[in-house]
Computed example of a mutant assay.
Amino acid sequence: MSWFGWALASAAFAALTAIFGKIGVSGIQSDYATFLRTLVILMLIAGIVSAGGHWRSPAELPGRSLAFLALSGLATGASWLCYYRALQMGQAAQVAPIDKLSVVLVAVFGVLFLSERLSLTGWAGVALIALGAVLVAWR
């Protein structure tokens, strides 16, 4: 499968994350719900890594990779904590589009920090994503 297929699968699973998470977080403190979800993810990924024979000692990995993976993990954890708190307080159909403003931020950060370039058409798409997210979430 190409990057596009994987990205579509990611979008579908992210949509299910919002729906299942909204149902699952009712009656449970959001940080604890995030912890339980993380345990499930850890077990799933550990099984996939084990089945694929991809275990490596972290000592074998470049320090820069480890540092940025740690930062990514911290950002993911913070994102999940905020997301579940927002789901507990708001409607999934409002929370998910605002969360997807991350697409806009990735475009901006990609240009600022990774020297990526977007065409005028690309920037128009980013602007439409931002506008669409706000319009869907607006009540």
Rank of each mutant, 00 (worst) to 15 (best):
G24N: 07
S10N: 11
S30K: 04
I48C: 12
Y32I: 14
L39F: 13
A7T: 05
A59R: 09
A33N: 13
A15H: 00
L69E: 06
L66M: 10
F4T: 13
G5C: 01
A7G: 02
G47V: 14
M1Y: 08
S57T: 05
A15V: 03
M1V: 12
L8T: 14
P58L: 15
L8G: 01
P62A: 13
L61K: 11
L61F: 10
I45V: 15
S26K: 12
S30N: 04
G52A: 14
G24R: 06
A11Y: 09
P58F: 10
G52F: 05
S57P: 05
T34P: 02
A18Y: 01
W3G: 03
L36F: 09
L69F: 12
R64T: 14
L69Q: 07
I45W: 09
Y32W: 13
L42V: 12
A59Y: 04
G21C: 09
Y32M: 13
G27Q: 15
G21E: 13
V49W: 04
F13K: 08
G52P: 02
L44V: 15
Y32A: 15
R64H: 06
G63L: 05
S50W: 10
G47C: 15
P62M: 12
V25G: 00
R56N: 05
L69I: 08
A59T: 14
I19C: 02
S26I: 05
A14C: 05
